[in-house]
Amino acid sequence: MVPCPRAEDGRESITIIGDGTADGVRSILTELRQKLIALGMMSEQRGTVEIVLAEALNNIIEHAYAPQEPGPLQLHADLKPDWLEIELRDRGRPFPGLGLPHPILPDSSGPVRTLPEGGFGWYLIHNLTDRVSYHRVADENHLYLGFMINRS
């Protein structure tokens, strides 16, 4: 992690690089959590950010990268007075059709044996963020996640 010096306009930025593996995701989330605690972000908002990032990063390691060829993950976070802006970059495959998946909640109304065991990720991401966008830039995926924040 490379914490930048506190800027005069109240912005902070954080860059974390990790491996595109489940353990790599965990360590990125743990580092970011520590940093957001240090910056005084409230617990509920840290929880929101952590859930969204877990889903977005897991999506990268499960779908953008091939399981046998994990690549790097890069997280850049800008904490502004009212917004937390996070950009995730990877060098994996682009999203199909170069667009974000639709946030559809899997149906859990049927009997136990038919209950969904996955497919919740994009629903959670869309529900818990205030802005989401995606750009394919050269051979990289750039996923932008924005959160409005209330500071205590």
């Binding site: 509920e44 859930i51 889903e55 897991n58 136990v112 209950l115 969904p116 065991e117 996955g118 919740f120």
Partner: peptide, 30 residues
């Protein structure tokens, strides 16, 4: 902390109980 993979694993655990056995949860943190 539980992400959607963890949630899926909890659902799968209920399915593998089989025979209509019930899985209840307690003490969920926020």
């Amino acid at each position: 902390f539980v992400d959607s993979s963890g949630l899926g694993a909890i659902v799968a655990s209920m399915k593998q109980l089989g025979d209509g056995r019930k899985l209840d949860l307690s003490g969920l943190t926020p």
